[in-house]
Amino acid sequence: MTAEFTLSPERPAEFIPELRLVADGVSRSFGPRKVIRSLSLEVASGEVLAVRGANGSGKSTLLRLLAGLLRPTGGETWVEVRGRRVSREQRWAMAALAAPAIQPYLHLTLAENLRFLGAARGGAPDAGSVADLCRLVGLSDRRDEPVASFSSGMLQRVRLALAVAARPPVLLLDEPSQCLDGEGRALVAKIVEAQRSAGVCVIATNDDSDAAFADRSFVLEGSADA
């Protein structure tokens, strides 16, 4: 159980060879507003995809759809391993999303947040893996402080730590470099590179330096007033 949880760049997750993240004709509207219209894409393990597009073009919505956190209005998204689709249940355990809209529990400490997520998702996190994660995001000395006292850049690091804590074969990063300093950006590079050997990574960003990590880009057309 602990092995499932201990992701760190030094000890990458077991590489799942033929893993693919697929969206097939997926669309999503919010009331009359169609944010994603019949979109198809595929990402295979070892690949890093950048999703680009103007503000309001639906990048965050697309990432939530890919994470299985949002129900598509039409079409579907799935994860397959060696050509076989994984069940809804397993798929939930395979993906993790870090996004600006996701807040950690402010009254819990960083270590408690990580332990909660790890335990809830089925691993039994040991002290070592929590320490590894805190070291990874450069917050070892603040690990026992409530997250409420963190700056916005530190909160962004917490979000990244929470996403990789689940040790997901499918890692989805929405604006991963927002609020981050130079060291933080290097951290994003490290996480993305580690994910390359763990499965699939999708980054939604308008930042060229983030997009540079990707093997290819997917551009979303449309904007807020479409």
């Binding site: 994470a67 956190l69 993790a96 999303l97 996004a99 809209a101 996701i102 807040q103 950690p104 529990y105 909660f116 997520l117 809830a120 998702r121 929470l162 689940a166």
Partner: peptide, 9 residues
Amino acid sequence: GTELLLRQA
């Protein structure tokens, strides 16, 4: 704003 984290957890 922790709903999305809980939904993932």
